[in-house]
C-alpha cells in the first residue's frame, strides 16, 4: 500500500497542494477508469446471460435469478424475496403477475397463493458465469476455425517478416553496393504508403495470383514491411564491421555470417519487431475483409465484425469472442509492455 498512499499524498515538492497536484490526481484516476473501465466492463459483460445483458440498469457482476421447480407447476418459477404484511421477509416463487400485484407461492407450501405488491419483492440472484458464451461459439459456430486462421496468419506472417526483413536489413547495413541508397530511399518513401491507397490494385494483383480467398493472400502483402527493414537496419548498423571482417577471415560464408553472427546479435531488435508484427497481424482487419469472402477463411477480426453486424446480434457471444480476440494482445501487453514502449519511443513507429 506504500505506493498507493505515496501516490495519493504526493504533492509538488512543497507542503501544500498545488493546483497541478489536483489536476494530476484527477487525470490519472480518470484515465484509469476511462482506459481500463471499458475493457473490464466488456469482460464482465461477456459472462452474462442474454437476459442479464438486456437488463437496465445493468449490474456489474454477472447475476442469474434463482428459479425453483414447484410442485404443481410445469415450468420452473422465479424466486423472489417478498416482504410480508407482518414485516418479515420470505422467499416466494412467482406464479404470474397482474398489474402491480404478483401472485406468489411458497415453494414449501405450494397450495396457497400469496398476493404481493411488485414493489415489495426483489428477485433472488446469485453470481454465475455464463461460460457457454465462450464454449458455444467455438463448438457450434466457426470461431474455432477463425481462431486457427488468425493464429496461422499471425505466426506465418511474423516468421516470414523476420526472415526477409532481416536479410534485407543485413544487405542494406553491411554491404556497399550500387543501388543501395536507391533501395533505402524506396523503403523510406513507402514507409507511409497505407493500404487504403493501394487496396484496389492490390486486390487485382492478389486475384490474378489466385490468392483471393486464400490466407496467403492476407499474409504475403504484409511481410515486406519497410518498418521492419528500417528498425533492423538501424540496429545492425551498431554491430561493428570488424566482427564481419573477423568472420570473413575465419572462412565464414556470407550466409553463415548472416545467421551465425549478425542474426544472433540482432536478437533484441528482432524481438521488438516480432512483438510488433504479432500485434499488427493479429489486429489486421481491412485487408482480410477484402481478401476473404468465404466464412471458413475468416480471421477472428473479420468473423467478429461480420457477426456483430448481423441483424439479430447475439451480444453474449460477440462479447465473449471479443474477449478471446483481446487475450493475446493483453498478454503481450502485460508481459512485453516495456519492450514495446521503449520500441515506440525509440523509433516513433507503430
Amino acid at each position: 500500500m506504500g505506493v498507493a498512499s505515496r501516490f495519493i499524498l504526493r504533492r509538488r515538492g512543497g507542503k501544500s497542494w498545488h493546483w497541478t497536484d489536483i489536476v494530476t490526481w484527477v487525470w490519472l484516476v480518470g484515465g484509469l477508469i476511462i482506459m481500463f473501465g471499458p475493457a473490464v466492463w466488456l469482460a464482465f459483460s461477456s459472462f452474462k446471460t442474454p437476459a442479464a445483458l438486456a437488463e437496465f440498469p445493468p449490474s456489474i457482476l454477472p447475476y442469474v435469478t434463482s428459479q425453483a421447480t414447484v410442485q404443481g407447476y410445469d415450468k420452473p418459477l422465479q424466486l423472489f424475496d417478498a416482504k410480508m404484511p407482518d414485516g418479515s421477509t420470505k422467499v416466494l416463487a412467482e406464479v404470474r403477475r397482474i398489474g402491480l400485484v404478483a401472485q406468489m407461492v411458497d415453494p414449501k407450501a405450494p397450495g396457497e397463493i400469496v398476493r404481493v405488491n411488485i414493489n415489495d419483492r426483489t428477485p433472488v440472484r446469485s453470481v454465475s458465469f455464463a461460460t457457454e458464451n465462450y464454449t458455444t461459439p467455438f463448438t457450434q459456430f466457426d470461431f474455432l476455425q477463425y481462431l486457427w486462421n488468425s493464429v496461422f496468419v499471425t505466426v506465418t506472417a511474423t516468421l516470414i517478416t523476420l526472415i526477409v526483413n532481416s536479410m534485407a536489413a543485413f544487405a542494406l547495413s553491411k554491404y556497399e553496393f550500387r543501388g543501395r541508397s536507391l533501395a533505402m530511399l524506396v523503403i523510406l518513401a513507402t514507409l507511409m504508403v497505407p493500404l487504403s491507397v493501394i487496396m484496389v490494385p492490390l486486390y487485382s494483383i492478389i486475384s490474378s495470383l489466385g490468392l483471393f480467398n486464400n490466407l496467403w493472400g492476407v499474409i504475403l502483402p504484409t511481410v515486406a514491411t519497410p518498418t521492419g527493414v528500417f528498425i533492423l537496419r538501424q540496429y545492425m548498423l551498431t554491430i561493428p564491421d570488424e566482427l564481419i571482417d573477423a568472420a570473413r577471415m575465419d572462412k565464414a560464408s556470407e550466409w553463415q555470417i548472416y545467421w551465425r553472427i549478425v542474426l544472433p546479435l540482432t536478437a533484441p531488435a528482432l524481438a521488438v519487431l516480432a512483438i510488433f508484427s504479432v500485434v499488427w497481424r493479429w489486429n489486421d482487419f481491412l485487408w482480410p475483409l477484402i481478401v476473404l469472402s468465404r466464412r471458413e477463411l475468416y480471421t477472428l477480426q473479420v468473423g467478429l465484425s461480420i457477426y456483430s453486424g448481423e441483424l439479430n446480434v447475439q451480444w453474449h457471444f460477440i462479447l465473449a469472442m471479443t474477449v478471446v480476440t483481446m487475450i493475446p494482445v493483453v498478454l503481450v501487453f502485460i508481459f512485453l509492455q516495456r519492450f514495446i514502449t521503449t520500441g515506440i519511443a525509440g523509433t516513433g513507429l507503430k
Partner: peptide, 25 residues
C-alpha cells in the same frame, strides 16, 4: 589471420566457440 583493434570477438559465443569458429568453417 588478423587481430582486430576492437578484438572483434563474437559476443554471443564462448571463448572456445570463438576459437573454434574459423576451424570448423
Amino acid at each position: 589471420a588478423m587481430v582486430f583493434q576492437s578484438y572483434a570477438l563474437y559476443p554471443h559465443m564462448s571463448v572456445r566457440q570463438n576459437l573454434a569458429f574459423g576451424l570448423e568453417n
